[in-house]
Deep mutational scan, measured.
Amino acid sequence: MTYKLILNGKTLKGETTTEAVDAATAEKVFKQYANDNGVDGEWTYDDATKTFTVTE
């Protein structure tokens, strides 16, 4: 399945996607991606759209 991440960081905004077997796996990938890019904030997940959002 394809999962999407929306980044609403103070210095980085954008979107990315990943292929993962489940939401938990996608979340690990996205949290590492956000961490690597210096984005740390509040996370939400919408199962209907398979979209994670992180907002600083």
Rank of each mutant, 00 (worst) to 15 (best):
E27Y: 14
T51C: 04
T44V: 10
D47H: 14
K31C: 04
A24E: 14
T2C: 05
E15F: 10
L7T: 06
E56M: 06
L7R: 02
T53P: 00
N8T: 10
V29R: 11
F30G: 00
K4I: 15
V54K: 01
T18K: 04
V54F: 05
D46A: 04
G14P: 05
V21K: 14
T49R: 07
D40L: 11
D36C: 05
F52A: 00
D40C: 05
V29F: 15
L5E: 01
W43T: 01
T11M: 14
V39D: 02
G38L: 13
A48D: 14
T16H: 14
Y3D: 01
T25F: 13
K4T: 12
T18F: 12
T49I: 06
L7E: 01
E19K: 10
G9T: 14
K50T: 04
L12I: 07
E19N: 09
A48F: 13
V39N: 03
L5I: 04
F30N: 00
K50C: 05
A24F: 09
M1Q: 14
A23S: 15
G38N: 13
D40M: 12
K31M: 10
A34R: 01
A26H: 00
F30Q: 00
M1F: 12
A23C: 05
K28F: 12
V21W: 10
T2H: 15
T16K: 13
M1I: 08
D46R: 03
Y45N: 01
T17I: 12
T49L: 13
V54A: 03
A20E: 05
Y45I: 02
A26K: 01
Y45W: 04
N37Y: 15
D46C: 05
K13Q: 10
D22C: 04
A20S: 07
T51Q: 04
T51G: 02
T11G: 11
A23N: 07
N35A: 12
K31A: 07
M1T: 14
F30P: 00
W43E: 00
A23R: 13
T49P: 02
K10E: 12
K10A: 11
K28N: 07
Y3F: 08
T55Q: 08
V21H: 09
Q32S: 06
F30D: 00
T2R: 06
L5N: 00
V21Q: 07
D46M: 05
G38D: 12
E27L: 14
A20I: 02
G41W: 10
E42T: 13
M1G: 10
G9P: 03
D40F: 12
N35M: 11
Y33L: 06
K4W: 10
E42R: 07
T25K: 09
K4S: 07
V29I: 11
K13N: 08
D36Y: 09
D36G: 06
D46L: 04
E56V: 06
W43R: 00
N37D: 03
L12Q: 14
T55C: 04
L5M: 05
A23Y: 11
D36M: 15
K50M: 08
